[in-house]
Amino acid sequence: MCLALPMHLTARREFEGDAELGGVRRTISLLLCPEANVGDHVLVHAGYAIARIDRAEAEATLALLDATLGVDPDVVPEPAHGAQARRP
């Protein structure tokens, strides 16, 4: 029930906003995340934005992970535990 989904904030009217996810649009409250701006990705829980999503942080996390583990994200292994690899 603490499920929260990332949504794209497309419009803002004071403490309300329009957010979009996979073609679905919803009116959300920004009372708990007044710093959100149009264009932001926000984390939405039960109709309220509760955080802005830091996209640069997400990219940095993945870059560090790939460097540490030696993963090339362009190479996708076959379902049988990576015995073979192919370029998509």
Partner: peptide
């Protein structure tokens, strides 16, 4: 790809899951 999926999908990436 939608901006939200671009944010989500890399954290489901099979190569990363397998390496982890």
């Amino acid at each position: 790809m939608s901006p939200v999926r671009a944010l989500r999908d890399p954290f489901h990436h099979r190569s990363r899951v397998e390496a982890l």
